[in-house]
Structure formats: structure tokens, C-alpha cells
């Protein structure tokens, strides 16, 4: 199996254009598992983790995160999103965070991918590039199903981009182990006070990452009433209503990791906690 270790983006894109049967390799923390289980036998492999352009990030009001940035680096250098840093911190173990990348999380596109609810709640754009040019796809359109996305086989994920949403954002992940656990349910909440925007996205409780539009609207109204620049004091009734709206947005199933009833319940709990924490800040 030929393996090309690309150093430049154009060289990688040419390879993909020439050989559409190529499998992209970043940190390998998903791909090598597939190989070990015999579920993947790539015809050709293209390693992208040494491409400078994919390892670069930019902060400021428009944040850009290179696809090959590892979780460890993102945590060290900052990601331009507090929720994304919280999500990165929950990924696997130190070894996995040292190798795994956000691009790989997007590439795999599992409903349990921990960065994905954050990217959804941030209204992030996934930047795809091929030898033919660049496509900028909103996350909501990028992911089409469990482990399915609109990425074409000749395209590389080069970055994710979003507007800096300020400090009121968080990520919560529920699992039955206190570390290194795949999410039974997860939630990202973003309250962009400057843009008066609310994003709430759910992981591990549907075929894709789900937004909770009714809950978002509910929180927007609460912020309108309290004033976007002021702390939000959540009443018990409001908390319950938020929980109900978030639970209702989920489309969970029963599987080995959890029951659908539990997923719905716990989403309501963590939504209330997330808003209480963000509102108080």
C-alpha cells in the first residue's frame, strides 16, 4: 500500500486528484483503529499531518483552525473558542490528544465526535479544498448522517472557520466513565452576546449533530428580557422549560452506551446547567 507523506498542500491535492481511491491520514486515531479491526484496507494512503498550511490557525474576530491541528496543540495555544477547548480536553487520553486532530474528527464525522457540536453551535464553516478549487460549507450542511459528509474524495478538509463568539460558550459531555469515554450525550451552548446569537447543538443523540432551534429561541427571548449584557438569572420553571425543549430536539436511540430515555433526560439536565453557568458569567 503506497503511502505519500505530503509536505505541501498542492502536492496533496494533486495526489487526491490523480487517485480518488486515496485514504487521508492525519493523526490516525480513527483510521488505525479501522485498520486494526480489518474494517478498512486502503488502496493508498496520503498523510497530511506535516502540511504546514493545515497546521496553521488564526485568531481575532474571524477564527480559523487548521485541520491538522492536534487537540494537544489546540489546548496549548488556544482555539479561539472556549467550548472547543473544553471539548478537546474531553477527547480520549493524553496519547490520543497528542495525535488526534479536528480535521480527523470532521473526516470521521461520527455523531459522537466531540468537536462537532461545538462547530455546529458556532455556525462554523468547513473549508474544503481540491485541485479544482475551494468550497466553504456550513457545518449544518457538511454532515449528512452518521459518518457521512459532503466531502468529495478529491477534497481535503483544510480548516474550520467561525466568528469569535466571546466567552459565553461551553461544552458538556456525559459518559459512564470519568475519562476516555465516548459521549452518551453531549451538548454545546454558545451565547454570542455581541451578535445576540444563541447556538445549541447536541451530540450522540441522533444520526447527525442536532441543533435545538426551539431551545435557542427560548434562550434568545430570555436574553432579550434580561438584557444581553447582563447576567441571566434562571428561574426553576425556565430551567425546566429549557430542558424540555432540548430533550425534545434529540432523536436518541437505545444502544450499548445508553438508553434513549436517559439521553433525553440527561440532555435536559446539562442544558439547564450550561445556561445557568453561562448566564451567571
Amino acid at each position: 500500500m503506497p503511502v505519500l507523506i505530503a509536505r505541501r498542500l498542492d502536492e496533496a491535492l494533486d495526489e487526491l486528484a490523480a487517485h480518488p481511491d486515496t485514504t487521508v491520514l492525519a493523526g490516525g486515531t480513527d483510521l488505525m483503529v479501522e485498520l486494526n479491526f480489518g474494517r478498512a484496507r486502503p488502496a493508498r494512503v496520503l498523510a497530511v499531518d506535516r502540511i504546514d498550511e493545515l497546521r496553521q490557525s488564526a485568531g481575532g474576530s474571524r477564527v480559523r483552525l487548521g485541520a491538522a491541528v492536534t487537540y494537544a496543540r489546540l489546548l496549548r495555544d488556544g482555539a479561539g473558542s472556549r467550548a472547543l477547548e473544553e471539548a478537546a480536553r474531553t477527547v480520549g487520553s493524553p496519547q490520543i490528544r497528542g495525535a488526534g486532530t479536528v480535521g480527523g474528527n470532521l473526516g470521521t464525522c461520527s455523531p459522537a465526535g466531540d468537536t462537532l457540536p461545538v462547530l455546529a453551535a458556532l455556525d462554523a464553516v468547513v473549508v474544503l479544498r481540491s485541485a479544482r478549487g475551494e468550497r466553504r460549507v456550513p457545518f449544518a450542511e457538511f454532515m449528512t448522517g452518521p459518518k457521512r459528509s459532503v466531502r468529495r474524495s478529491d477534497e481535503l478538509i483544510v480548516a474550520a472557520e467561525w466568528d469569535d463568539a466571546g466567552p459565553a460558550q461551553t461544552f458538556v459531555k456525559v459518559g459512564t466513565r470519568n475519562a476516555m469515554v465516548i459521549a452518551v450525550a453531549s451538548l454545546a451552548m454558545v451565547i454570542d452576546r455581541a451578535r445576540r446569537r444563541v447556538g445549541i447543538a447536541l451530540g450522540s443523540c441522533g444520526p447527525t449533530i442536532l441543533r435545538a432551534p426551539d431551545a435557542e429561541r427560548f434562550v434568545r427571548v430570555l436574553c432579550d428580557e434580561a438584557g444581553w449584557d447582563r447576567p441571566l438569572r434562571l428561574s426553576e420553571a425556565e430551567r425546566t422549560e429549557l430542558g424540555r425543549l432540548v430533550s425534545a430536539a434529540a432523536r436518541p436511540i437505545d444502544d450499548v452506551r445508553g438508553t434513549s430515555a436517559y439521553r433525553r433526560h440527561v440532555l435536559g439536565v446539562i442544558a439547564g446547567r450550561a445556561l445557568a453557568r453561562l448566564g451567571a458569567a
Binding site: E86, R89, T90, T170, F171, V172, K173, V174, G175, N178, A179, V181, A183, V269, I270, R273, A276, R277, A280
Partner: peptide, 22 residues
């Protein structure tokens, strides 16, 4: 707990599920 907290000492760890709530 408000503010900085050692999440690894709490149920759910860095999953950020609780900072003491519940």
C-alpha cells in the same frame, strides 16, 4: 464551585457535567 475547579475530582471529570451541581 464557581470559577476554576479541578474537574477531574468530580463525577464526569473533564466532561464538565457537574461543577458541584447535583
Amino acid at each position: 464551585i464557581a470559577g476554576e475547579v479541578d474537574l477531574t475530582a468530580l463525577p464526569g471529570g473533564v466532561g464538565n457535567v457537574t461543577r458541584g451541581e447535583g
